[in-house]
Amino acid sequence: MPITLEIISPEKLLLSKQVDMVVIPGTEGDLGILPGHSKLITGLRGGLVDLYENGKITERFFVSGGFAEVTEEHCSVLADTITRQSELDPGKAAEALAAAQANYAATDMADANAYLEASDRLISAQAMVDSVSAKRADH
């Protein structure tokens, strides 16, 4: 029994597909979602969403953060920016990381909201760089 995965960006519904399992990068750690998963709402950190069919990863998407809603028969990933892993640009990723690091360094640590935002951005950018090299390791 497959599970329906929807990957949605604010602009459009990017993907709606039946898969055997999907692994999403939750804020508290990666989550493998199988059909019949209990109802769950979670935040997402930057990372890869992996689609599994027949025991193999068929597609990988990089998300920069967002939310996911899981029920027994479907999983919706609401992400800010979504990129197919094969289309990630190493140059851009490195750029984003440098910008995030600069931003993090300039952030006032006493301001909880600003700190949270800056660290989210840094984690997401770091994940983007890692995702690029993850692809290279596959080849």
Binding site: T27, L40, T42, G43, F67
Partner: peptide, 11 residues
């Protein structure tokens, strides 16, 4: 009846 991660407030 949803489980929420990390928790209601943070999310």
């Amino acid at each position: 009846d949803y489980e929420v991660e990390p928790d209601d407030g943070t999310l």
